[in-house]
Amino acid sequence: MFRGLRKTDCEKARGMLSAYVDGHLTSKECEAVESHLKGCEKCRHELESLRATVGILHLMPMISIPRSFALERVEPLRRPRALVVLRAATAICVVLLAFVFISDSINIFEQPPVYIADESSNTMGTFQFPTSDLSGFMEQMDRWLSGSFEGEGTTGTSIPVRQIEYGLLGVVVILGGASTLTYLRARKEGSA
């Protein structure tokens, strides 16, 4: 009759009686319930009392409204100022982060190589990258990050690109989180 579950047949049938009353069972479920009801007086009583309950509920009157709920004027809710500020700040930081990241990936911060003419011979000069500039700093940063930096010192012209990137990323995450929380709160209050 009822397969696959550990419940007793009566428990399974009773769990389906409500949907059976509404005609919301599949034909297979319906057959199983009807087959069980034929041999179970207790469940037939359950069905009758459930039908009576639903019948009483259907007879419940609609209550008259105490007054009209028509609206006279509805002020549009303004978005909270904090949300506007947070969103603007997040957008600015995202743009800055994107700018720094793209610039870094195309080496825009790197100083151009210096042409050094080889005066001792008649051969062509060579291009050399200045070691005390940004690329040097990046090497130092890599060493510093890997723990082998020994305080060689950087020149005053270096730009700490990665620090800026990490810093901006952190700010974006914090501002984005705060914006989301503010938005969710405002939405719950119906003003977003």
Partner: peptide, 23 residues
Amino acid sequence: RSRLSRGRARLRDYLLERGELSP
């Protein structure tokens, strides 16, 4: 379906306890 089933069953038991439904 499940909420309706449990809600109706509880309501029926409530009414039976108060004699509003004959057992």
